[in-house]
Design a protein around this nucleic acid. Structure first.
Length: 463
RNA sequence: GACCCUUUCAUCUAGUGGCCAAGGAUGCUACGUUUUCAUCGUAGUCACAGAGGUUCAAAUCCUCUAGGGGUCGCCA
């Protein structure tokens, strides 16, 4: 039997990184086994804007390079189907109508809490055959086993045992007739042919409920894998206030999808000591048996490191293409390779890389005060002037960084000075700061005319 | 409150009774490379939650305690 996994988000508007990780695990496992990865939108409640939510999810999937198989399943469009199963259970006596009001339920729960019990429905209408109270639209409840254990083997956590009386006769259809989550999930997972359900461990407690449905309907159980949550750096649940939770925000912040995926796959999963995984390697090596039991904390440092790694290893043409979204269009630049080779080691994100590039491409509008103090002193002005003269009278072609380096060498030899004497002021003249790529590279990128222009401007600024 | 899950460096993790005076990675600190910064390289830093057992031997098995998380909806 081939593997079928799924990602089944409720339409909340965007895909967050915790969701992306479980989706990734499911996707990897399906791809690993040449199976199918399905997408289902859980919108049984108020069908809140699910089209938009789907778009957001697909956009995120697209960006990271994940794809799903077949058509998207909307639960809101399958109510007829669920209704059939509700009727079937009612007919078979496996479900029943409950006429308890919300107020009565609240009172019951409160009383149970006061007694230190786990709040649960008391089953008062389970075997009811009297006259139903007037004016109340009943809910439908499913008959859960009253004693014994509900046991299942979780692929991550091992055997899970939950006392049957912890699972009450939960509602499968609201008083307006619409079905509820645990009921439809079980039906859809079964009908869609799921073999492996990989989801967040906040669903661990839903599993016994869903098993009740599987059993009542005679469906075959899939394998369950409950993946522990991703927490923030403080070990608390990841929330919007921890910065980026929307996957697409990572794109905007200049992260590469490879980096994000590599980061997420290593959160709660590992393969020995390996840290760097290409998509192909992930697919080849991923196995849910290697998923960790415990929650992990999100820490941005490693993501940044991975991102830097992937930027360094991305072909320049591809970087140039991605950089367009960050306001840098260098695809047609004739020194593209040189420019990116000089900068890609220095930018941890595409945003930083764009800054680096702009720094070189645009003449500095001002000079960093500290840099000026350090570099434009002594005979710096005179040296810069001499350097201009040398560039202007240089007889060999000036194209490559090494060409410019030859000029610099000639200068230090003639003036009997160290490289730093010219290097520092030159750097400040070129980009206005004391850091950045090599001056040889920068001059080669901007060309001799622009170089001279920038130095002249710097010279003019030195009192 | 009840029930369930979980606990190795600051962080992600390796580890399934001897190979572990616990390995890798990130971070941090040095040093080296570099005209600068970054990259890169080298080194250092740092952990088995605690207490009891079982065993010739325990990070690994058992018990308890403590911490963290989750769940208890006519939400999903």
């Amino acid at each position: 039997m081939s593997t079928v996994t799924r990602f089944a988000p409720s339409p909340t508007g965007y895909l967050h990184i915790g969701g992306l990780r479980t989706a990734l695990f499911s996707w990897l496992w399906a791809r690993h086994n040449d199976g199918k990865f399905l997408l289902r939108i859980e919108d049984t409640d108020r069908a809140r804007n699910s089209e938009e939510a789907l778009e957001a999810i697909i956009k995120a999937f697209d960006w990271v390079g994940m794809n799903y198989d077949g058509d998207v399943v909307y639960q809101s469009k399958r109510f007829d189907l669920y209704k059939q199963y509700i009727d079937q259970l009612l007919e078979e006596g496996k479900a029943y109508k409950c006429y308890m009001s919300k107020e009565e339920l609240d009172a019951l729960r409160e009383a149970q809490m006061a007694r230190g019990e786990r709040p649960r429905y008391d089953g008062r209408y389970r075997d009811f055959d009297g006259t139903p109270p007037e004016g109340i639209d009943p809910v439908i409840r499913i008959k859960a086993p009253k004693e014994g254990m509900i046991t299942f083997v979780d692929g991550v956590k091992g055997e899970i045992n939950i006392a049957a009386d912890e699972v009450d006769d939960f509602i499968i259809a609201r008083s307006d007739g619409t079905p509820t989550y645990n009921f439809v999930v079980a039906i859809d997972d079964a009908l869609m042919g799921l073999t492996d359900v990989i989801r967040g461990d906040d669903h661990l407690y839903n599993t016994p409920k869903q098993i009740v449905v599987y059993n009542a309907l005679g469906f075959k159980l899939p394998k369950f894998y409950h993946v522990a949550m991703i927490n923030n750096e403080q070990g608390k649940k990841l929330s919007k206030r921890d910065g980026a939770t929307d996957v697409m925000e990572y794109k905007a912040m200049g992260y590469l999808p490879e980096a994000l995926l590599n980061f997420l796959v290593r959160l709660g999963w590992s393969h020995g000591d390996q840290e760097i995984f290409s998509l192909e390697e992930m697919i080849a090596l991923f196995d849910p048996k290697d998923i960790n039991k415990s929650a992990s904390s999100y820490s941005p440092d490693k993501l940044l490191w991975l991102n830097a790694h992937y930027i360094k290893n991305t072909p320049n043409a591809k970087l140039a293409e991605m950089l367009k979204e960050f306001g840098v269009d260098i695809a047609e630049h004739d020194r593209l390779e040189m420019l990116l080779d000089a900068t890609k080691e220095r930018g941890k994100t595409l945003v930083e890389l764009a800054q680096q590039i702009n720094l070189i491409l645009n003449a500095p509008s001002e000079y960093d005060a500290k840099a000026v103090k350090k570099a434009f002193k002594g005979d710096a002005k005179e040296i810069l002037v001499d350097f201009i003269a040398m560039l202007q009278t240089w007889e060999k072609p000036l194209h490559l960084p090494s060409d410019y380096h030859a000029v610099l060498e000639a200068l230090v030899a003639e003036k009997e000075i160290g490289f730093g004497k010219i290097g520092m002021p030159l750097r400040v003249a070129l980009v206005g700061a004391l850091t950045g790529p090599g001056v040889d590279e920068m001059m080669a990128i901007i060309g001799v005319d622009e170089t001279i222009e920038r130095i002249e401007k710097a010279v003019a600024s030195i009192a």
